[in-house]
Simulated scan of single mutants.
Amino acid sequence: MASGLFLSALVYCFTAFAAHAHSGDGYGGGFVAGFTHPILGWDHVAAMVAVGLWGAFLGAPAVWILPVVFPLVMAFGAVAGILGIPIPAIETGIALSAVVLGIMIVFAVKPPIWVCAVIVGSFAVFHGYAHGTELPTTVNAFAYAVGFVVSTGLLHLIGISFGILVRWPAGRIAVRGAGGLIAFAGIVFLTGVA
């Protein structure tokens, strides 16, 4: 089941349109708009699944710390976006998050947990900022924030579910391969091919 969920997420990563997630359009009420925003762009999906995958690859305590750090820091990035605090290169940072996290998985990089948290938290700022700047004016900001935090958590869980396969030799290969696909997706977005 976990591999099916992950495969579905990867297929979605390559078929979703990034521009959809960055259009600023609201889909329903505040919660619905926030919930759908991360899942309507493959750049967000790839990076958020990668956080769960890398956490699972690293094992405890990273498997739980990284998926908590990301939405917490992402919320601060969203506030910066809502307030209009300028942060440069948001789309580049989002694309780089998929590239870097994917590479960490491919090469089984295992830095100290605080380094992992800094890497994940740094990229979370870019994702949160994108969510914050694209807050539809007609929705409740709190409900919107709850929606994008919940969907982010679910994307992390998809990554963790697939990442649990690292317990077996073939599973480690599959997880590292998924990291390669995520890094490739980030490169595609970074170069503007998609």
Rank of each mutant, 00 (worst) to 15 (best):
P169W: 12
L181F: 05
I65L: 06
P38I: 05
P111W: 11
K110A: 11
L58W: 09
F126W: 02
V99A: 07
F142N: 07
G180L: 10
F126G: 01
A80G: 08
H22Y: 14
I119M: 12
S8L: 15
A33T: 12
I187K: 03
I105P: 01
G30H: 01
L72P: 00
D43T: 11
F76T: 08
S3W: 07
G77S: 10
G128I: 02
V45G: 04
F148W: 09
V63A: 09
L58E: 07
G24C: 11
M74L: 07
G84H: 13
A108H: 12
G102S: 14
C116R: 01
G163A: 10
V11D: 00
A145W: 13
V149K: 01
A95W: 10
L10Y: 01
V51G: 03
T133S: 13
W42E: 03
F184W: 13
P71K: 14
R176V: 00
P169F: 08
V118F: 08
G177Q: 10
A108E: 13
V79A: 15
A178R: 04
L5A: 06
S8F: 15
G179W: 06
F162R: 07
G186N: 13
A33Q: 02
I173G: 03
V109W: 15
G177P: 02
L135S: 05
I85F: 13
S161W: 12
A19E: 11
G59R: 13
V100Q: 08
L10G: 00
P111Y: 08
D43P: 02
A62I: 11
F14Y: 15
M1P: 10
